[in-house]
Design a protein around this nucleic acid. Structure first.
Lengths: 190, 190
DNA sequence: CTAGTTAGTGATTGAGTACTAACTTTCTCG
DNA sequence: CGAGAAAGTTAGTACTCAATCACTAACTAG
């Protein structure tokens, strides 16, 4: 048994939670599954986080932040066409190497909707804030054209959807997408 | 108590299942919640469907089909710019009047990913087939330009995402979208 | 060494859940 | 009417899951 500081453990929990929640969603994921992946007893999660929802929220926000960071860093110092290419490339690489982050994003969107419907606006507010940070980064990188920004983000959402639905890279549905998008492959079982 | 034919009941179950699964996903929705909404005892669902998964699949596929039908009918006899406008308008009206169908679509995408990861390709195959039918309708309506088709679908996915995340219609994130998209409002608790 | 703090576990509980089996009610039609 | 089929119910099983409680093991400062 490896002892860690609470802060380090929380990090491990967040990473494990992303892969678990990504695959089976909030309700489909048991806290025991997360604990097993971390290598810790299930009750101990409740020392590190106040409850299951808090774990999900932490995983969600981390994911949003990861995407923002990757896109931001990829386009640093670039402008226009070059920036677009770099950002698209970076995003596709992220979700190719970490498909769980793609699914976690989609789980997040849906869960925001559910949370809002139940009167919890805090989670949604945080997610929207993270999204707008990403939006603004793309926006300035693209020369502050709202239409182009929207189209760029839209293609990102389409990539997410097609990958989630399991369209293989060679499928004709990928025609008409940024050519980089095609490298995106199948989701793996983990 | 109103007696119905099994076929009629199945229809009611599908409608109820869409609203329930849309909000809380596959695992978050109990068969009892669906039965309550239908106005029937919970075990009776298992006479009408072989199991919970079958109910979800029926709800998913119905939703995909609804979208396809609405888009197809809206663009009938139109071409190019006119068809685009009509389809966008029809889609936005559909998800404004039936927000549950928007969420159910997103639940479907995620659940396909989960099903594929567990070795069930049947469900995914059916969903992809439905999606391609929609794709092809849009494709021919838009004059068979793959880039435009992809961009159109992409904007649809972005609308889904923004609505799910709860961005209000007046939010600046809607700038740069088709103007029709803006009418889309908040999801309601039902 | 000792006292106190931090990291972690095992046992349990109470609520919920998908699904089955056996039974009852209502409709239909010769 | 009477009988079979179709529509529906009640009761129950076997199981899972988030969260709590009371406890132990390991580290650390004086």
């Amino acid at each position: 048994m490896v002892r860690m500081s609470a802060e380090e453990r929380r990090e491990s929990v967040i990473r494990a939670a992303i892969t678990e929640f990504a695959q089976r969603g909030y309700y489909g994921t048991s806290t025991e599954a997360i604990a097993k992946r971390v290598g810790v007893s299930q009750p101990y999660l409740f020392r590190l986080f106040p409850g299951k929802k808090a774990i999900f929220a932490a995983a969600s926000l981390r994911c949003v932040e990861d995407v923002r960071r990757v896109v931001e860093e990829s386009s640093k110092g670039l402008e226009g066409e070059e920036a677009v290419h770099a950002m698209a490339d970076a995003y596709v690489r992220l979700i190719t190497e970490h498909p769980e982050k793609l699914l976690m994003q989609m789980q997040t969107y849906i869960t925001v909707a559910a949370a809002e419907a139940e009167g919890d606006h805090e989670f949604g507010e945080a997610v929207r804030k993270g999204w707008m940070r990403l939006w603004d980064i793309v926006h300035v990188s693209m020369g502050a054209d709202v239409n182009e920004t929207a189209t760029f983000m839209a293609h990102g959402m389409l990539i997410n959807t097609l990958v989630a639905m399991g369209f293989p890279p060679e499928h004709r549905v990928w025609e008409g997408m940024y050519p980089e998008a095609r490298v995106t492959g199948r989701l793996e079982k983990s």
